[in-house]
């Protein structure tokens, strides 16, 4: 987009949207939106409060544990489904169902099975992220050029070598794409889990703010979450770009 000969950067329109938000807030048009400046002020206050820091710590640890589990299981499941036809036939349908199912409905079950604590959140993150990682890994493994594997075999590679030195690396672009999507879903998992459990981490804060109608604090916290989600997606995206040349070579 160019305006008066200047090239406007891609995300610059967000500034315009923030202005619109401010105006809408000032005019008190929509109950949901307090002025953006007020939200920013609340944001500054929020990030300094010990409650917020504690909630952040809980969120990050549960998120990381859940994601680590999801990546380990997702990649393993994906490789299995990509290499073994029976596994693909038996599990593929369920992985597909769970990848697009409204898993939020399962969170109440998790609360009963794993208690109203961090364990439930970890499992939510895991369940939200694992399926898409498995699907992408499977797609990557299935699209490996067979000649690569035949090459390794003709040079006398053992079974383990073929997996560790060929398959995982050749499927890396897709695996990373899956992990990036998994991260985005994982963030949603951690938030939805906390919202539903509502007594730990950000969920507790959200519950507090919406019950007491603290709109500015509520939006400040939402912005923090959005920023966190975008940051995570961006970081994995950077990593993905570094291995993009693999995909380029393959096409």
């Amino acid at each position: 987009m160019t305006l008066f000969g200047y090239r406007l950067p891609m995300m610059s329109s967000l500034v315009v949207w923030c202005l619109i938000w401010e105006i809408v807030g000032r005019l008190e048009l929509v109950l949901l939106f307090p002025p953006f400046s007020g939200v920013l002020a609340a944001l500054v206050e929020l990030v300094q409060s010990p409650k917020f820091l504690a909630a952040t710590w809980t969120t990050i640890t549960t998120f990381c544990i859940g994601m680590a589990l999801a990546i380990a299981c997702g990649v393993a499941l994906g490789v299995l489904m990509g290499r073994v036809r029976a596994a693909e036939n038996l599990l593929g349908m369920w992985v597909n169902v769970f990848a697009s199912a409204p898993l939020s409905a399962l969170v109440p079950v998790l609360m009963i099975l794993f208690g109203m604590g961090e364990k439930t959140i970890i499992v939510s993150v895991f369940l939200f992220a694992v399926w898409i990682i498995a699907l992408d890994t499977q797609a990557g493994v299935k699209h490996i050029t067979p000649s690569l594997i035949e090459m390794a075999r003709s040079f006398g590679a053992r079974r383990f070598d073929i997996y560790a030195k060929i398959i995982l690396w050749a499927a890396l672009p897709e695996i990373l794409a899956g992990i990036r999507l998994g991260f985005i879903r994982g963030v949603k998992g951690v938030v939805i889990g906390q919202l539903l459990v509502s007594i730990i981490g950000y969920g507790e804060l959200f519950e507090l703010y919406s019950r007491t109608f603290l709109m500015e604090e509520f939006w400040a916290l939402t912005i923090v979450l959005f920023a966190f989600a975008l940051l995570v997606a961006h970081l994995v995206g950077l990593l993905e770009k570094r291995v993009e040349y693999y995909a380029g070579v393959r096409q």
Partner: peptide, 19 residues
């Protein structure tokens, strides 16, 4: 419009539902 939806797509919009 694109940036708004890119943000919404990546963000946990569920947080806004209680409000």
């Amino acid at each position: 419009v694109a940036p708004v939806f890119i943000v919404l797509q990546a963000a946990p919009v569920a947080a806004v539902i209680p409000m």
